[in-house]
Structure formats: C-alpha cells, structure tokens
Amino acid sequence: MGESVLYESSGEIVTITINRPHVRNSIDGPTALTLRNAFRRFDDDAGAKVAILTGAGGTFCAGADLTSVGDPERRNDLDPEGGGAGPMGPTRMTLSKPVIAAIAGHAVAGGLELALLADLRIVERDAVLGVFCRRWGVPLIDGGTVRLPRIVGLGRALDLIMTGRPVDADEALAIGLANRVVESGRSLSAARELAEQLVTFPFECLLTDRASAYAGLDMTVADALRAEGVAGVPVVAREGAAGAARFVGGAGRHGQFDEDPPEPRW
C-alpha cells in the first residue's frame, strides 16, 4: 500500500500527506510514529518555513484506526502519565514554525485534533468536522480539550465536545474553527497559496509574533505584554529597521505590498 505518510519539500514549503485512503487516513501506531517523525523533520529543517498537513484520497483524517486497538504491534501509544507526543503522532509537540491544515472530506475525532495542531485551517465547502469519537467512548487525548476552547471559545467547544455533532464548513468558518472555506478539491492548492504568501514576509518577525501569541495564552496580561516586548524589540533592529526604510522610501503605501501577491481564490 506504499508509505503511510508522504513528505514533499518544495522550496521553503513542506507538504505532509497522510496516505492511508483505504481507511480514510485513520492513524494506527506505526503511522503515528511516522507522522511524528515527519513533523520533527520539518521543525528541525532550517530551510523549511511552513508545513501543510493534508490527507490523500479526498479525506483529511477519520481519527485513530480502531482496528488497531486489539493489536499490540499496531495500537496507538497510550501513556497513562499523559506523556509522549500523542497517540495520533505529533499532537503534543510544540512546533516552532507555522502549519496549515488543508481539510477535505472528514476531519473527525483524532483527525480533528490533528487539524487543531495547525495554526490555520483551509476547509473545503463539503467537508465535515466533529468530535465523532464521542459515540464510541474514546476521549479526546490528542489536544482536543486543550486547543478547541482556545480556538472557538469554551461554550462552543463544550457544545462540540459533549454532543459529538457534525460541523459543516460554513459553521466552522463562523465560529473560527476554519480560517478559509474553499470549493471542493481546492484545499491543498489554497493552502499552498497561503503558504507562499507567508514565506514572503520577514520571517523572524512572523515567528516572533506567532510565538508571542501562543505564549501569552498562559500568562497574565502584564506578563504577556512584557514578554512580547522582550521578544520583539531585538527583531526591530534585525528586520524592522530595513522594512521601515523601505516604507520611508515609498514602498507599501496605502496598505499595498511591495510586490502584491496574487489574489487568493478562496
């Protein structure tokens, strides 16, 4: 059946594809390890700036492969101490660079949790998201109860977590679970367009702001403001001064980019 996870580099953009379409890209233990290693490879590669996570065959990921539960060689890693990188693979990793999820078909149960690992989610119009593991007595142990409230708010998260109901693309966009909604078949190309836009920016600045946004979630406002300044001020000299000089010289006036990227076709 080939490799369970595909890793493709194109310049500064990496595409990681869950490649088990015969089981709707569900994740067993060996696939989880391979997926974890793919994200570790991306995070360690100084030449890679943005990763796209997607699934083969028109489905993002249907969650854990429940056929592996009774097989010691294929079952997902379940640490009773809550350690490790997560049963689905990379879900307890702290990544230093942006990830975009390109979502087609279903992103449910552990598949939704993988999507929540991403910074941004591009969702096809006929996609379905949800905590479908609710009906099988399988809890969210890949970050779902942690990341979902931070993304959509506690009230909406509890609705999805407790009911396990399906969420379509329009609702996902309305509640902030999706960042973009695109037509069927366009999630991957739209994710690539977005990744190409991100890599054009002064990247140390982008990474610093991204890291500050995440770190601030666990701090008081006063501490977060102080940490933002500590991390950001040195970047002003390294990247901001050159950007300011370009602006003073006439670039970027009226909100225009120096070289406008192509209009995204969401």
Rank of each mutant, 00 (worst) to 15 (best):
L35F: 00
E12N: 08
L33M: 12
T34P: 01
L114D: 02
T59K: 04
A104K: 15
A62D: 13
D71A: 15
S4F: 00
R41Y: 01
V99Y: 07
A104C: 12
V5Q: 07
D28N: 13
R75L: 10
G84R: 12
G82F: 05
R75W: 04
R20H: 07
I27Y: 00
L6H: 00
I16C: 01
V23F: 06
A107M: 06
V5D: 11
T17R: 15
T94V: 14
D43I: 07
R24S: 12
R92K: 14
A64D: 06
E81L: 13
P21N: 13
R92M: 09
R40D: 00
T67D: 14
L6V: 09
I16D: 02
I16F: 01
A56L: 03
T17S: 15
N76W: 06
P98C: 11
L6W: 00
S96A: 12
F39N: 13
T91G: 11
A107I: 06
D71G: 14
R24V: 10
R24F: 15
A56Q: 09
T31H: 11
T15G: 08
I16G: 01
G58W: 03
L53I: 07
A104Y: 05
L35T: 10
L35W: 00
I103L: 07
P72K: 12
S26V: 01
L53K: 04
T54M: 05
H22K: 10
G55Q: 04
A56C: 04
R24E: 11
C61N: 04
A107P: 13
E81P: 00
L114S: 02
G2I: 07
H106L: 08
L33A: 14
T67S: 13
A48P: 09
D65W: 04
A107R: 10
S26A: 15
S96D: 13
A62M: 11
H22S: 10
V99A: 01
D77S: 07
G29Q: 05
V69S: 02
D28S: 12
D28I: 09
A51T: 02
